[in-house]
Design a protein around this nucleic acid. Structure first.
Length: 208
DNA sequence: AGAACGATCGACT
DNA sequence: GTCGATCGTTCTA
């Protein structure tokens, strides 16, 4: 099963956050069902220099210890007492850094995602535009919780990333014109000078 | 032991 | 645009 390698994650976090756009998130649920999404939005967090990062200035606690793991490790944490957020650990081991997954577009298993997100209610409104455009929404729809914290994305069957849907036996979508957009990160107004770092990246459809 | 706060979301005006 | 939900993590003592 082809997937992104350790080397992919072992490098500059901002560059990796950009390179992750257009890659594919693959999740296998315990019952064997597969879910696939195409990554459309990411953010970079770097403990060495970034006051918005949980591990700023190498702060090591029980929670942030995951960020000190080898690159290619999943970091899942709970925010606001309600929502899980999925990150991919980057940089050489010991440099606590990660890319936060903020958005995907559904590729395979959409109905299962819808049920995980909204429950069994048959006619939940499902607006394509707002379905998976937030870190809490992605985790809910993909059944990702802190149970996946510390999963090794380079060997796990339950959670990994790959370049192409072909890597998991799915057809490639038609290519679309998209541009890479850059801006400040969401929800980090407390982070002093780091709140303005342009470390949020997303894909936008080209007009016309 | 207690308190403050948060890498969000959905409901609402 | 505003606001409240909800609880684990972290720090203080």
């Amino acid at each position: 099963m082809a997937r992104l390698s350790r080397e992919f994650y072992d490098g500059d976090t901002v560059e990796i956050a950009k390179k992750l756009l257009g890659k594919y998130l693959v999740r296998r649920l315990e019952d064997g069902r597969m879910l696939v999404g195409r990554i459309t939005e990411t953010e970079a967090y770097i403990g060495r220099c970034d006051k918005a990062c949980h591990a700023y200035n190498y702060r090591k606690t029980e929670r942030t210890s995951t960020l000190f793991s080898q690159p290619g490790t999943a970091y899942v944490y709970l925010i606001y007492g309600m929502y899980d957020c999925l990150n991919f650990v980057t940089e050489p081991e010991g440099e606590p850094s990660a890319v936060l997954l903020r958005g995907v577009e559904p590729v395979y298993g959409t109905e299962t995602m819808r049920r995980l997100r909204y429950g069994d209610k048959p006619d939940t409104p499902y607006r394509r535009k707002n379905f998976l455009n937030g870190p809490g929404k992605v985790c809910k729809a993909f059944g990702i919780t802190r149970a996946q914290n510390r999963v090794d994305l380079t060997t796990s069957e339950e959670l990994f990333l790959c370049d192409s849907p072909k890597d998991v036996g799915l057809p490639c979508p038609d290519p679309r014109k998209e541009r890479l957009c850059t801006g400040p990160r969401i929800g980090v107004d407390y982070a002093e000078e780091a709140k303005d770092f342009p470390w949020r990246f997303w894909l936008e459809k080209e007009e016309i």
